[in-house]
């Protein structure tokens, strides 16, 4: 199995669905719209010749200023062919939803929760789409690029009095 054969199989099976295919450092990257994500993933997993049975990685990316702003990246591994493929799905900010892949790979459950927690990408039909890392009552999604990088101003000797005056310290 190599990238040429794989891209050929994908083009035959989905002549209209795929947006683009490119190669980066020997890995085939397939960009596709979210409507076809589950069909393409199922094709890659269940076709006897391909058998990309292992979802190695699932993560969100925030390209602030680009349209679509978000992207969900899937890395699949075929254990029998020793070959990897990368799927990329663009997600617009106005409607940040992607169909879930938990029906195909149970491991997608927690990784999709992480992507939801960090980027606010909503995975449709996910069994329990809750925060996984941040506290339940946290507001916002911290890995978005428009969230401030630092949390509080760093205190030095010249400004620590002003900072400590506002900071909440616990006393007995």
């Amino acid at each position: 199995m190599d990238n040429v054969i794989l891209s050929q199989r994908l083009r035959e099976a989905f002549p209209q669905a795929l947006t683009s295919m490119s190669e980066f450092r020997g890995e085939l990257q397939v960009v596709l719209p979210r409507e076809h994500l589950v069909a393409v993933a199922q094709f890659l997993r269940d076709t006897p010749e391909l058998r990309y049975v292992y979802l190695e990685n699932l993560c969100g990316v925030d390209y602030l200023g680009r349209e679509p702003r978000f992207e969900v990246v899937y890395h699949l591994l075929s254990l029998s062919n020793r070959h990897r493929v990368c799927l990329k799905v663009g997600v617009p900010e106005a409607d940040p939803t992607v169909p879930t892949l938990t029906v195909l790979w149970p491991t997608a459950n927690w990784q999709e929760r992480e992507a939801y927690d960090m980027f606010g990408i909503i995975f449709r039909n996910h069994p329990s789409l809750e925060r996984i890392l941040m506290p339940e009552d946290w507001e916002g999604h911290p890995q978005r690029k428009d969230v401030p990088l630092g949390y509080e101003e760093v205190a030095f000797t010249f400004n620590q009095d002003a900072i400590y005056a506002q900071k909440h310290f616990v006393r007995e």
Binding site: M134, G150, Y151, E152, A155, K167, H168, F169, V170
Partner: peptide, 20 residues
Amino acid sequence: SCGGVYNNYAIVQGVDEIIP
């Protein structure tokens, strides 16, 4: 003591915010 290098959303900026 003060959050150290982790000046970010995930870490309490000094444990004196929660216990004396």
